[in-house]
């Protein structure tokens, strides 16, 4: 049980796929302009991660080493297509906005990476925990970056058409945060803050 908890916990901060392993960055830089995007892309990626980890782990004894990558990709792509169709059916406005980034989850390195590095070598429960942990780690960074860029780059935070926080018209938001350079600035800032917190812990 403890091992499973460790697998889950590790990816949230210490081995965070984005801030620590720095894989699967492209969608994060592209869609983190809104908090809402982060929630949905994060959930979609987590679903795919968990499902593909479980299936890859279940099939690991029957998967010949030589063709494991095509098998992983078929499994991942199937789950991505399921997510794609489901989102199109039930959340069309968000599907519209995330656009190409939903199908592109297929090539997200976090997912193939975990299938190859973890699920192919470990049991179902541990793979499930790893997938969930990686998903949570991926999602919280995506939401936090989206919230940061939306709030400071456009002056307000909107969730499901409701404004949560707004600075009012007196605040002139630095539009650079919403544009592409802002993605890199915010990402760097997040890594810096995480390093600062962790280093402070060590020196005590």
């Amino acid at each position: 049980m403890k091992v499973i908890w460790e697998d889950f916990k590790a990816s949230i901060v210490l081995e965070n796929p984005l801030l620590r392993l720095m894989i699967g960055l492209c969608p994060v830089l592209a869609v983190s302009t809104r908090m809402e995007n982060g929630i949905f892309l994060g959930l979609a990626a987590t679903f795919v991660l968990v499902s593909s980890n479980v299936i890859v782990s279940l099939l690991r004894k029957f998967t010949p080493n030589k063709i494991r990558i095509p098998i992983f990709i078929v499994i991942i792509a199937s789950f991505v297509t399921i997510v794609d169709l489901t989102m199109k059916a039930f959340f069309p406005p968000i599907y519209e906005r995330l656009g190409i980034w939903i199908p592109l989850i297929v090539v997200n390195c976090v997912i193939l990476g975990r299938a190859e590095a973890f699920a192919y070598k470990h049991g179902v429960l541990r793979s499930l925990a790893d997938g969930l942990g990686m998903g949570v780690g991926f999602t919280w960074v995506l939401i936090a970056m989206g919230a940061f860029r939306e709030l400071f780059g456009s002056g307000s935070l909107v969730l499901f058409d409701r404004t949560l926080i707004s600075f009012g018209s007196g605040f002139q938001p630095p539009a650079i945060l919403i544009k592409f350079p802002g993605a890199f600035l915010t990402f760097g800032f997040f890594i810096g803050v995480l390093n600062l917190i962790q280093n402070r812990g060590k020196s005590k």
């Binding site: 099939l59 029957f62 998967t63 010949p64 030589k66 063709i67 095509p70 098998i71 078929v74 499994i75 792509a77 199937s78 297509t81 399921i82 169709l85 489901t86 199109k88 059916a89």
Partner: peptide, 23 residues
């Protein structure tokens, strides 16, 4: 190897067909 891959792909295709029919 080809047969194994074919089985995996068939199962995947079947699942996707069902999802498509539903959505």
């Amino acid at each position: 190897l080809g047969l194994i891959l074919m089985v995996v792909c068939s199962v995947a295709a079947g699942t996707l067909g069902l999802t498509y029919a539903y959505t």
